[in-house]
Design a protein around this nucleic acid. Sequence first.
DNA 1: ATCCCACTTCAAGTCCACTTGAGGTCAAGC
DNA 2: GCTTGACCTCAAGTGGACTTGAAGTGGGAT
Lengths: 145, 145
Amino acid sequence: MDQTDLLDIGEVAAQTGLAASTLRHWESEGLIEPAGRRGLRRQYVASTLETIAHIRLAQSAGFSLAEISTWIRADGPPEVDRGALRAKADELDRTIEHLAILRDQLRHVADCPAPRHAECPNFRQLLRRAMAGVFDRDRRSPPAR
Amino acid sequence: MDQTDLLDIGEVAAQTGLAASTLRHWESEGLIEPAGRRGLRRQYVASTLETIAHIRLAQSAGFSLAEISTWIRADGPPEVDRGALRAKADELDRTIEHLAILRDQLRHVADCPAPRHAECPNFRQLLRRAMAGVFDRDRRSPPAR
DNA sequence: ATCCCACTTCAAGTCCACTTGAGGTCAAGC
DNA sequence: GCTTGACCTCAAGTGGACTTGAAGTGGGAT
C-alpha cells in the first residue's frame, strides 16, 4: 500500500458526494479515521469508501451516528453485541415492511381517482395494515436532509 | 358522530405513544387538526389515529414534516402532485433495497465468526452491493430519535 | 362551592448532524 | 519568493423536530 493508494479528503468527498466537513465530523465521532497525514492533510485508504457506504446505509435506516459508531469504531476492538445486532436486523425487517406499505400508499394516492383518499376503501385498508405495528414500542425513525 | 366518539389529546397520546406536545407541534405544522374543542381542550375524531399512523410511517421513510404536510394537509384541498408521489415511491423502492442490504449486513456481522469483518469475503461482497447506489444522487436519509 | 388535574398558550431550551466562519498551514506553480 | 488553493483547527451557528417551563383555564368529582 504505497502512498499512491491514499486519498485526500477532497477525493473522498468527491467520490462519496459528502462534504469534507462531514468527513471531519464523522472522524470526531469516531466513525472513520485517516490512515495517516501528509503534512496536515488527512490521507484515506480506499476501503474507507466502503466504510462510508456502510455508514450512509445505516443512517438511512435511522441509526444515529452514536449507534453506528458502536459497531464500526475505527479504533478500539471491533467488539459488538451480537444480540443487539440481531435485534436491529429484526427491527429493520419491520421497518422495511412499513416502508413497503407507505410506498404502496403513495402509489395508490398517485393513481387513485377518488377525491378524498379517506373515502377510498383501498386506501383505508392500506392504512389499517399500516397501523398494525406503527404504534408499537419502537419510536425509531429518522430525519432526512 | 356524537361527542362520545371524540378523543382528548391525552387519549390520542396514550393510543399512539406520542407526547401531547408532539401532537400540538404537528398541528402547528398543519399535519393534524382536532375536530373541535371542548372548552379549551382539543377533541379528535378516531380517524386521526390513522392519519397519525400515516405520518409516523412517512417519517420512518425519512420524509420531513414539511414534505408530509404537502400530501396530507389537514385543511385546504388534498391536492397532491401525483408525479412527485410516484417519484417518492420509486425512491422508497431504492431505500427499501438499501435497508435490506443493511439488514443482511447486520445479520452477517452478528453471525460471522471472522474477527475482522473487513476480511470476510461475504461481508465485503455485501458492502460492494451496498456501494452501488448509496453514493448516487439522493442525499435522502433520516435521523432517528 | 371548591379543588384537582388534565388540559391550554407561548417562549425558550435541547439534541443531533452538520455547516460556516475566522484565522492559519503548506506544497506547487508562476 | 510569492501567490494560490486545498487543506487545517476550533468555536459558533443552523435547521428540524420536538420538549420543557411558567403561568393560566375549566370540566367533573367530592
